[in-house]
């Protein structure tokens, strides 16, 4: 009977739609990378394969400065966000309900509940005045803003890891007269490390990805990679945009592949 041979795992049409979905996801990115190897300056006019635009990008002072700013910003914001989020996660897990537990959880997640553009406008209103009053135009504003929206992203995996952790090892350490600090450093922290690493990476990528916040809060002359790319897109469409985009794409592939390899080794 035909009906008996039917496999529930293979619903009709699903594979076709799924493969179509992957094709749709990848064709634009493949074409983008392909265009980055175009020797010609005008995009869309193919003049042969060349690494010219990668060389041009790596000699472009403005691009290099933006890359440097982006990496510094993402590292600092992710670092501060991860440390404070770890502390907050330790505070809100593994305890009987205490007064304010829900409030802490809600506050830490609050930046996720507001559209980024609204948060950017809100910070712009305040920080523009601080800028005027103090005259300081450094990276501090962007670090503060990025740290703020990175905290909930770092908090999620760390909290999830803590909730899944077995309390008995720490109890055992305490029974053996280990001090609270010693227990934390030698038992809790190593167990928590994968969660902290995941939180840091998530925060790092989210910071690196950000356009809106940086675009609104940067001081004149300050550029991150995405705001530089956005500016180039507005000014002149040359193949260099595709080279820079491909480099950013490469970074994401490396990060995903890296975390993939790291989790596989453990499993």
């Amino acid at each position: 009977m035909a009906e008996r041979a039917f496999n529930i795992r293979r619903l009709p049409g699903v594979a076709t739609l799924a493969i179509g979905c992957f094709v749709i996801l990848y064709i634009p990115m493949v074409i983008l990378v392909g265009n980055s190897f175009n020797a010609g300056k005008v995009i869309g006019h193919w003049e042969g394969v060349s690494l010219h635009w990668y060389v041009a990008a790596l000699h472009n002072e403005a691009f290099l400065a933006a890359a440097q700013t982006s990496l510094l910003l993402a590292t600092l914001a992710a670092l501060i966000a991860t440390i404070t989020a770890t502390m907050a996660a330790l505070a809100t897990t593994r305890a009987a309900d205490f007064r304010g537990q829900g409030a802490i959880h809600l506050i830490v997640n609050q930046p996720l509940m507001v559209p980024e553009i609204v948060l950017a406008i809100a910070l712009l209103i305040i920080l523009a005045q601080v800028k005027q009053a103090t005259g300081y135009t450094g990276l501090g504003y962007l670090i503060a803003a990025h740290t703020t929206f990175c905290i909930p992203f770092a908090y999620m995996p760390i909290r999830a890891r803590l909730e899944g952790m077995d309390l008995s090892l720490e109890t055992a350490a305490a029974d053996l007269y280990a001090s609270r600090f010693y227990t934390f450093r030698r038992v809790t922290l190593p167990l928590l490390a994968p969660g902290i690493l995941a939180g840091f990476m998530l925060a790092f990528v989210v910071s690196l990805d950000d356009v809106v916040m940086s675009d609104f809060l940067k001081s004149p002359g300050q550029e991150t990679l995405p705001t530089y790319l956005m500016g180039e897109l507005r000014r002149n469409l040359t193949s260099e945009i595709y080279a820079i985009s491909s480099l950013l794409l490469l970074i994401s592939v490396l990060i995903v592949a890296g975390s993939w390899a790291a989790t596989r080794k453990k499993a």
Binding site: A85, M87, T92, G100, I107, Y155
Partner: peptide, 18 residues
């Protein structure tokens, strides 16, 4: 526990809620 959460809570209070 509140002291532990204070840095994160302060950052979000000052740079998002305010």
């Amino acid at each position: 526990r509140w002291r532990l959460a204070l840095p994160a809570v302060t950052i979000i209070m000052v740079f998002s809620i305010l």
